[in-house]
Design a protein around this nucleic acid. Structure first.
Lengths: 233, 233
DNA sequence: ACAAAAGTGTTGGAACTACACCCATGT
DNA sequence: ACATGGGTGTAGTTCCAACACTTTTGT
């Protein structure tokens, strides 16, 4: 029965990472200049190694670029059009991750020419990487509406106005600050700290942090209509 | 620069299909007995061919088993743990599809020993196929709450009570029939036909069909809170 | 004192939940 | 006539969107 396997043709398997960050102003994507191809911006990527799972490989590649571990990482989609890479057929499994820009700044590996780009102003990208970014953005929007993953993009301590700016950036809109803060606080996920942000505004905004216990216990039933899909079966 | 590719090890790439069906009673998954392994139930699967995209391969494999085309098909996840297949390392991209059981019955290819199983009573499955089914069910629940994909599991003409039974089966619950029908009809997606179902109940329920035009125009903003993520950018 | 951002409260409408009765028809 | 499932209506509640003024503090 091993015969069946031997007749099959194998393919190269790559991973590509859509790395989102937020710098207080806009939603950003981290891109690298591929040394080999020379002048094209592309997503950070790499090859699957024999003893790695896909997830491990994606985490390793992210680490190689940013030095970060314990980062939000989620599989996005497998891309496999026959000619997506014109040189050798390659299947790429794309992952997207959310990083705190402040953490990254200090960790950047110089080996890659990396730069943050606004998602509304991307350069031309290698292969099908633009499709990947577009899909990742859709997924981020879809997901952030139901799961409070937005926190992954902010520092440990953040203010409500910062959080609102993040959501404004993700959805490219301008939420009403009163309704926004009511809605966010009503989740009970935020702990108000006894400390105000200095320097940015005159009055100063209170810092909050995520209640790690409640955040860990979250299920996915923030939804309309769905009974809690984590525990149905 | 081609050197970089040559150093990389390639992997076998398989596709596996989680095929959901609804027979009027419960939500079912179509499983096959793998001829070669002999006695184990597994998902329908196959190998990626050199000139196919992943999606085309998944559609082909589905066709080979069921004879169906134009079926709802969506990529679920890529599974790549190093030892998921103990014989040869294989990456599998899983797709899930929704089929109308009635269509399938007449089309079944005899070459595969296929059977519908209740999702609440599955046999032991090959490799990580049980994980795949579990994830597919979560995705179906998640998705069906926001997108009216439930219709894909029903025949062209169906009654509201049938549709309610389907949703009851998907969520393993019992929706209130008055609220359910109000909610479904308020979408404006259903066209009431001038024909009643015969034989099942004394009174007979009206048939409906999906308004194909409106269904095609759907965006994904049935959601709580998300501005329409299809058109933001 | 004033400018700039933070913070908070109310109201009308919409949507959701819970709940019970009548209808049509085959036997 | 009666049993079976089909179909509909209402009332209370909650949730959401829209909207404007007061507070704090650095300059």
């Amino acid at each position: 029965m091993v015969e069946q396997y031997k007749q099959q043709r194998p393919y190269l398997l790559a991973l590509d990472s859509i790395i989102f960050g937020f710098d207080g102003e806009g939603l950003r994507v981290l891109l690298v200049k591929r040394g080999i191809e020379g002048s094209t911006w592309s997503l950070m990527g790499g090859w699957l190694q024999p003893e790695e799972s896909l997830e491990q490989a994606a985490a390793r590649i992210l680490f190689e670029l940013t030095g970060l571990t314990n980062v939000y990482l989620e599989q996005l989609h497998a891309f496999g059009d026959p000619y997506r890479d014109p040189i050798v057929r390659t299947i790429s499994v794309a992952y997207f991750s959310l990083v705190k820009v402040a953490d990254y700044e200090s960790n950047l590996s110089e080996a890659f020419q990396a730069r943050w780009f606004s998602i509304y102003d991307l350069p031309t990208l290698l292969f099908d990487h633009a499709d990947m970014v577009e899909l990742a953005l859709k997924r981020l929007r879809y997901k952030a509406a139901q799961h409070p993953i937005g926190f992954e993009l902010l520092p440990e301590k953040f203010t409500i106005p910062q959080l609102k700016k993040l959501y404004d950036a993700i959805y490219n809109t301008d939420f009403d600050k009163r309704n926004f803060s009511r809605k966010i606080l009503s989740t009970g996920l935020l702990i108000k700290l006894d400390e105000k942000q200095k320097g940015f505004s005159k009055k100063g905004a209170y810092y909050y942090q995520v209640d790690a216990v409640k955040y860990g216990q979250l299920t996915n039933s923030f939804l309309n209509f769905i009974p809690n899909t984590d525990t149905i079966l």
